[in-house]
Simulated scan of single mutants.
Amino acid sequence: MKILIMCGDPQVLKDLVLCLKIRYQNLEYTVSDNITEGTGLIETLSPDLIILDSYLLDSTTQNIIISIREFSDIPIIILNTIGEIGSKVQFLEDGADECIEKPIR
């Protein structure tokens, strides 16, 4: 399984990668901390899953989801700040498949 992780928070990224490595030893993952690079990687890597941090500095998460959905139906999981219910609903309406609150437990 190939996963593309787009995350701008080094600690969240570190925790997430550690959890994934422990649970899925054969997992291939690629990391991007900016949307331009990440979107390009979607097209070249053809990942099976995208994990997208809701806190990326170079674009809004809503725009990213809509942009990805214009050319791909790859499942998208959003890492959302705890307690932001309104944004969670919006992300799902825009095409995300799931929202997980961070910090990840």
Score class of each variant (00 low, 15 high):
Lys2Leu: 04
Ile3Lys: 03
Ile3Asn: 06
Leu4Gly: 04
Met6Leu: 15
Met6Phe: 10
Cys7Asn: 15
Gly8Tyr: 01
Asp9Ala: 06
Val12Lys: 13
Leu13Val: 06
Lys14Met: 09
Asp15Thr: 11
Val17Tyr: 08
Leu18Ile: 07
Cys19Thr: 07
Cys19Phe: 11
Leu20Ile: 03
Leu20Cys: 07
Lys21Val: 01
Lys21Gln: 09
Ile22Glu: 11
Arg23Pro: 02
Asn26His: 12
Leu27Gly: 00
Glu28Pro: 03
Thr30Ala: 06
Val31Gln: 03
Asn34Cys: 12
Asn34Trp: 02
Ile35Leu: 13
Glu37Phe: 10
Leu41Cys: 05
Glu43Phe: 01
Thr44Val: 12
Thr44Glu: 12
Pro47Tyr: 05
Asp48Trp: 08
Ile50Asp: 00
Ile51Tyr: 07
Asp53Ala: 01
Ser54Lys: 08
Ser54Arg: 07
Tyr55His: 11
Asp58Cys: 04
Asp58Ala: 07
Thr61Asn: 10
Asn63Lys: 09
Asn63Trp: 00
Ile64Ala: 08
Ser67Asp: 14
Ser67Val: 02
Arg69Tyr: 03
Phe71Thr: 12
Phe71Ile: 08
Asp73Gln: 14
Ile77Thr: 08
Ile78Pro: 11
Leu79Thr: 11
Thr81Val: 15
Gly83Met: 05
Ser87Tyr: 14
Lys88Pro: 02
Val89Arg: 10
Val89Met: 02
Gln90His: 09
Asp94Ala: 08
Ala96Gly: 07
Glu98Val: 12
Cys99Gln: 01
Glu101Tyr: 10
Pro103Leu: 08
Arg105Lys: 09
